[in-house]
Design a protein around this nucleic acid. Structure first.
Lengths: 232, 232
DNA sequence: GGTTGACAACTGGTAGGACCAGATTGCTAT
DNA sequence: ATAGCAATCTGGTCCTACCAGTTGTCAACC
């Protein structure tokens, strides 16, 4: 992780800390720079990023204020929190999973109608690679993500794909933990194969049903696992 | 529009212009600063924003490069383009409308199950205000947005609400034009009332069906209007 | 004592210079 | 012709300075 990311992470930490405090105001730029061991220029650039991400608000001649939690942070901000591994109450796994379900069940309907032969080839290649990785005992989280994103991509709507990528990034760490559990990889692959088959036969209704079941099943398995493990 | 936004807009313009050029590379920071009449500090802060928005990539000791179009820009970037009114091929109204449909049809199912009494009050108040504005011949685009976002909000999933807000921002200008057409406001309000009724009776299936029809109808009306008007 | 005014001490916003380290370019000497 | 060096680019960082408003303090005045 480079200096820029470290600086962002430090600032995100301050923001999360300040969120509980009564005073929803950050120290001045000069003070922040000294506290974080960076120059004001660098701090300002990071603050500019956090501002367009809707996490803070800078009022000239006044100060830097946290945006109230009810004004939703941007999707990119949620992703940033996740990728920089900052503890945050704003990213709820169940909510992200719900959004993913909604999103992908409908996207796969479109994919079943619009998929090209090339899309099928891509999906099949990903499935093959997943099987190989499964045999070698590797974590299938990234293969799983590749399959689902390729599925959404076959719907030929870049906005849907963009949303899908954000949602997947949000749940990345949880999915990695999920695929550590024995058997979850094999089960996931079987369901992927059936979904791909439905998309290949252009059966939108069946594909949607399978995706919904796929999500419901993995959510249930995850809840069981985390309830018994209780390590989160 | 303040100086920061103007600077961002100017840079976005350069990016869109450079996208057609063979050389996917922007001038250096010093040169940009001089050309745009700003200091390097200001340009750097703006570039930092465009970088986290995935529009550009800065390579140390090399230069500033445009990200290839196939790597999707962030949702926030799409919104930024729209709000700063920069001509861009990356925001397609039909695609955004399709994403909105998917998104809201499923969100309203959840809303029908989870809506509180307060949600109903809010929705009803928005509907009442819309009727007043309709009588006064005002543009209903903002009322329409408020109703739909309140509907999504009743699903009690902040991530869904965040996505909804982004999608609405993307289509804002088109919706304003749409509500200029005579009759579209009244028709829209009738359908809103029926949707609200279904949500109040917790009939998720009916509510979803009505929302889908609502979107299909308005899209069709918009296509007819823009085909006859041909001013876009 | 309470109000009001002026002044000093902040704040973020902008500007512009300086230096660094690595990459590129082009020239020079072999 | 080529190997090697030097000048010159690049973005990344730091620094000082100034501006224009806001905020807080405190003294003077009613």
């Amino acid at each position: 992780m480079n200096d820029r990311q470290l600086l962002l992470k430090a600032l995100l930490g301050r923001i999360d800390a300040a969120r509980t405090a009564p005073e929803a105001r950050l120290p001045g730029e000069r003070e922040l720079a000294q506290a974080l061991g960076a120059s004001r220029s660098s701090v300002r650039e990071a603050l500019g990023v956090l501002e367009v991400l809707r996490l803070i608000e800078r009022r000239p001649q006044s100060g830097i204020y946290l945006r109230p939690h009810d004004s939703e942070p941007s999707l990119e901000a949620l992703v940033l929190h996740e990728t920089l591994d900052v503890r945050s109450s704003s990213v709820d796994y169940e909510q992200a999973q719900e959004a993913r379900t909604i999103h992908e069940v409908e996207a796969v309907r479109l994919a079943a109608e619009r998929r090209s032969a090339g899309d099928l080839d891509d999906l099949l290649a990903i499935l093959e690679r997943s099987r190989t990785n499964l045999r070698h005992g590797r974590n299938l989280a990234d293969d799983d993500e590749a399959f689902h994103l390729a599925l959404i991509g076959a719907a030929k709507n870049p906005i849907l794909l963009r949303i899908g990528k954000s949602l997947y990034l949000m749940t990345r760490s949880v999915r990695h933990a999920y695929f550590e559990a024995a058997g979850s990889g094999a089960q996931s692959l079987r369901e992927h194969a059936r979904i791909l088959d439905a998309v290949a036969r252009r059966d939108a209704t069946l594909a949607a049903k399978l995706v919904r079941r796929h999500y419901a099943g993995s959510s249930a398995r995850w809840r069981r696992a985390s309830a018994s493990g209780r390590r989160r």
